[in-house]
Amino acid sequence: METLGTNLPYLLRGARVTVLLFAASLALGTVVGVGAGLLSAARHPVPRGIVAVYVFLTRGIPLLVHLFLVYYLLPVIGLDLEPYVGATIVLALYIGAFISEVTRGAIGSVSRGQLDAALSLGMTRGRAMRKIVLRQAVRYFLPPYIGNAVMLVKLTSVVSVINIWELTLAGREVVERTLAPFQIFAGVALIYFAICYGLSRLGRAMEQRTEFGH
């Protein structure tokens, strides 16, 4: 137990990097994902098709392979990205595909009649979508979105495989030094658990506040 105790500060520094990486990629990924999800509800087939291809390619390939592709591809096309920036972008684009599907599902969950009613009252399609459909879609959007956010926290651990430093890699370093894998990895697991569980609770609190019918 003391091994874990003495190395805790180091691990917590790793945790801090994990959280920053998570926050940045979630922010970017949400913008990309919601944008793509909205595009997939467009009336024109071209934007819908582009999003479908994006989702297909992204979700059909493991995150690690995406990371390797970017890692090996960048020097070839002459781009030099700072590792954390590159990792954030890849994570964001990866989670964006999932969020896009969540958005699409949420919009689809709002009954067609709502849009019909809004249109029949004389609202333009854009206005009807915004004030009536999207406002109700939020209720269906939050739970799976939070689920994907938790998934993202766990996905940040994958960047350790390409030697980007965060909690998992910090853990591996400590294990190599101290040769106490059981303690250390248990400790790392608990830190991840705390972050993920906390995120879920936060999410549930937000869900409560978007209930309507006060």
């Binding site: 009954s111 009649g113 709502q114 019909d116 009613a117 809004a118 249109l119 029949s120 009252l121 004389g122 609202m123 333009t124 399609r125 854009g126 206005r127 009536i132 406002r135 109700q136 309507f212 019918g213």
Partner: peptide, 24 residues
Amino acid sequence: GEEEIAKSRGEIGMVFQSFNLFPH
């Protein structure tokens, strides 16, 4: 265009089988 169509619809009222009131 969307605007014109919306305006025409505003002069025609419709009531649906499933009411479609805005729950929020």
